[in-house]
Design a protein around this nucleic acid. Structure first.
Length: 787
RNA sequence: GGGCGAGUAGCCGAAUUGGUACAGGCGCAUGGCUUAGGACCAUGUCUCGCAAGAGGUGGGGGUUCGAGUCCCCCCUCGCCCACCA
């Protein structure tokens, strides 16, 4: 058999490992730099088709750019902290660290089987102290500048994973990781103040050449709303302390005349104050009961049950600042405590939700005039902007994560752990099982780290008696918010990254990743970098110039691959049968990589790619005997080669590998028709194929007598003039209908085109002797005669 | 419910700026080569028509000499957000 892929791939990989082909020289400023980044994997220990799609296809571009003379940085690492390691520990009693490093070891080998040209010399492992030392250092910087803050807040809690979650990790009221319904808890937790950057994150999008849908998804997530604050004075008939007013946020201050009641969220501090005080509210019990009921509800129940509920505060009213009328105040859970001021003015005439509530509670719905801004300002209205974005909750009550570099003094005040004590090591003497029991904080759950004796002793020893550790670890999204900075200088023990290298290599030129990270990792990383930029720690505010979201490979049934559906496919099976190169080409050919569509796996498709490669082998081997370069003078072959070279290159730039491969197939079809294909032509073809099928191309290169590795060979350069022909076939239309064509010099005039057109019988017939009233002539393309 | 994207052949998909719609592949058909073939090679493959020709990019309208591409309305699917005032 001419194409023994197993042997060919093995020997190609051996050759590469000896040549150190893919190590980027970051200090080399002589060639144009290109930082190609792909989201690093979690070391689950199992390489699936999704990984192939992510890495093998992106690799095509890395290889192509290298051959095109760019200084390419294509690094890889592992996002190695996270729950699965810990769950394995709980379930099987293995050490999370051991579990993780073993998986990494396995995945390195699996990744190598793809023939991906990663630069392993810059590998980062987020779980390694040499890495998380700097995660901690950066966190400390954010803390010092007021961008990390510990505060009591209503947070989302996953009962199964026994940890809090960031807003972004709650999907439809369920835990993003395990799908368990989340509950709300009031806990003191660490937050990164991403909301301070809402405006910057929006503005930055305008500077980026990303697909509109990615930008739009981020804009929607940030959720900017422009409106105003208005004050509704309270009218009370009780003695003692006076509550002056309720501040509401509205995007429609002009509808204030129609506000017929005011609603407070059950979490609104005023509600507590009113019910717990001596105020003369006649239905305190009822209100308290309602608040308790609301607290018991999950987020989902609260939003899914659209039936409006609420309780009126009896004995207290508000004054509409526009009409000066006294209006009732309600507590209702359709108003959220975490957005705006937690209080709204209800305008049933203009707001659907208010309308529904008004109907149910029999409140007036009045048609009103609209207020001018001048009037609103006179009422004390102040323009305001609100965001849907919430601060990023980064505390996790889990073991296998980066320890938060904080200690508490005897009074409970948090202090950053000084840099000299970093890395602040994750203790090993812990009970991994999260207990969920309450602790010293505020009725919060207990983190696994709280079971470590060593950690407590460490703190006492360094900071003194009465000092206590922070027991939570950081959300793993913090780890991955800066890993691409570390790639540039992964061994540096004095700094998180080298300023000069960052200056040269940032921003990342192209970032390839999954759609699911649009409002998580991609947003976090942008925020993190903007913050570091403001602290003069990184040279660019926007870390990623281009962003490409890839699609999804579906199962044979067209559905999303999942173990429960039993429609998963094992890439190893196909690699064994058809070879890694065929699998790579298949994935690249399955659809446009620059559009996040979903592409069903097709068994015939993989074998078709294998056949294509076999034809390539036959072409090359069949012409090995020829030492002459007979066809290199043949203009049609030269044009075909030039065309393919330019097409493959351009399509690569657009991440359209499907059409690039189609161009190679067309080229092969043409070459197969030639009676004689020279060695030089075969060389060219194999070089064009190299980014796609790196192993086979390496093999054929050797057979043809190529020196060294094909992956160091320069991309074939063709003069664009080769493609420029003197003449072109021009479509001739009569009244917009195609009636024939003429062949004409590109320098030909409209008169010449007309003369030639009149010589074509079909065109003459269509004209029927009439003289065109209008002639549209587009050089090299079309001649349209309007009669 | 709102936002964004998409809809092209039996299937996956091509179509730089508005300029010959369907490249490439799959599948299918016919023929060749074969003891045989699920291998390989050749040819064909949007629809109607013997042909000349006519029609055709989810449906309807519009702009234009010319629309898959631009504009308006509708339908379907996908993704994101969703009681965010």
């Amino acid at each position: 058999m001419a194409y023994d892929h197993t042997a060919i791939e093995k020997s190609a990989r051996e050759k590469w490992s000896g040549l150190n082909l893919y190590t980027a020289d970051l200090a080399d400023g002589t060639r144009e730099k290109y930082y190609l980044l792909v989201e690093f994997p979690y070391p689950s220990g199992d390489l699936h088709i999704g990984h192939w799609y992510a890495f093998a296809v992106t690799d095509i571009y890395a290889r192509m750019l290298r051959m095109r003379g760019k200084n390419v940085l294509f690094p890889i690492g592992f996002d190695a902290f996270g729950l699965p390691a810990e769950n394995a520990a709980i379930k099987n009693g293995v050490d999370p660290k051991e579990w993780t490093y073993k998986n990494i070891e396995r995945m390195r080998i699996q990744l190598a089987s793809m023939g991906v040209s990663f630069d392993w010399s810059k590998e980062v492992l987020t779980c390694d102290p040499s890495y998380y030392q700097w995660t901690q250092w950066l966190f400390a910087k954010l803390f010092e500048h007021g961008l990390a803050e510990r505060r009591l807040a209503a947070v989302k809690w996953c009962p199964k994973d026994q940890t809090v979650l960031a807003n972004e990790q709650v999907i439809d009221g369920h835990c993003e990781r395990c799908g368990t319904e989340v509950v709300e808890k009031r806990l003191t937790q660490w937050f990164l103040k991403i909301t301070q950057y809402a405006e910057r994150l929006l503005a930055g999008l305008e500077t980026l050449p990303w697909r509109e849908e990615i930008k739009e998804a981020q804009r929607a997530w940030i959720g900017r709303s422009d409106g105003a604050y208005l004050r509704f004075d309270l009218k009370t008939d009780f003695q003692g302390r006076t509550l002056e007013s309720i501040k509401v946020f509205t995007t429609r201050p002009d509808t204030v005349f129609g506000a017929t009641y005011v609603v407070l969220a059950p979490e609104h501090p005023l509600v507590r104050e009113i019910t717990s005080s001596k105020f003369q509210i006649s239905n305190k019990d009822q209100i308290e009961k309602y608040i308790n009921e609301t607290e018991k509800k999950t987020e989902r129940e609260r939003s899914e049950n659209k039936e409006k509920t609420g309780v009126k505060l009896e004995g207290i009213t508000a004054v509409n600042p526009a009409t000066k009328e006294e209006i009732p105040i309600y507590v209702a859970d359709y108003v959220l405590g975490s957005y705006g001021t937690g209080a709204v003015m209800a305008v049933p005439q203009h707001d659907e939700r208010d309308h529904e509530f008004a109907i149910k509670f029999n409140l007036p719905i009045v048609d009103t005039k609209f207020a001018e801004w001048g009037e609103i300002a006179e009422m004390g209205g102040v323009k305001a902007t609100q965001y849907r974005l919430r601060d990023w909750l980064v505390s996790r009550q889990r073991y296998w994560g980066c320890p938060i570099p904080i200690v508490y003094d005897p009074s409970g005040k948090p202090h950053v752990i000084p840099a000299e004590h970093l890395p602040w090591l994750l203790p090993t003497d812990v009970n991994f099982t999260p207990t969920g029991s309450t602790t010293l904080t505020t009725g919060g759950p207990k983190s696994p780290l709280a079971s470590s004796k060593e950690l407590k002793e460490r703190v006492t020893k360094i900071f003194g008696e009465g000092w206590t550790p922070e027991y939570d670890t950081l959300d793993t999204f913090v780890d991955s918010s800066w890993y691409f900075l570390r790639y540039l200088d992964s061994k540096n023990s004095h700094s998180f990254s080298d300023p000069a290298l960052m200056q040269h290599w940032l921003p990342v030129d192209r970032y390839s990743g999954g759609t699911e990270h649009t409002t998580m990792h991609l947003l976090y990383a942008r925020f993190f970098n903007q913050a570091l930029y403001d602290l003069a720690l990184v040279p660019v505010a926007e870390p990623f110039k281009e962003r490409f979201n890839r699609g999804l490979i579906m199962g044979l049934d067209g559905g999303k691959m999942s173990k429960s559906k039993g429609n998963t496919l094992n890439p190893d099976e196909f690699v064994q049968k058809y070879g890694a190169d065929a699998v790579r080409i298949y994935l690249a050919f399955i659809g446009p990589y620059n559009e996040p569509g979903s592409y069903p796996w097709n068994l015939d498709g993989v074998s078709a790619m294998r056949k294509f490669l076999e034809r390539v082998v036959r072409l090359v081997e069949g012409h090995l005997v020829s030492t002459q370069n007979i066809d290199t003078k043949c203009p049609s072959i030269q044009r075909a080669l030039a065309h393919a070279s330019i097409k493959v290159s351009n399509d690569g730039d657009r991440f359209k590998f499907n059409t690039g491969i189609a161009a190679l197939m067309s080229l092969l079809n043409e070459l197969e028709k030639e009676p004689h294909v020279s060695r030089k032509t075969a060389f060219t073809f194999v070089i064009l194929l190299a980014p796609f099928a790196p192993h086979l191309a390496e093999h054929l290169w050797g057979q043809l007598g190529g020196e060294g590795s094909i992956h160091l060979a320069p991309w074939p350069a063709f003069d664009a003039s080769l493609l420029a022909t003197d003449t072109a076939e021009i479509t001739v239309q009569v009244n917009g209908k195609r009636r024939g064509s003429i062949t004409l010099s590109l320098h030909g005039t409209e008169e010449e085109a007309l003369t030639l057109a009149h010589e074509v019988p079909a065109i003459r017939a269509a004209l029927g002797g009439r003289k065109p009233s209008r002639v549209i002539y587009v050089v090299g393309k079309i001649l349209n005669l309007v009669v």
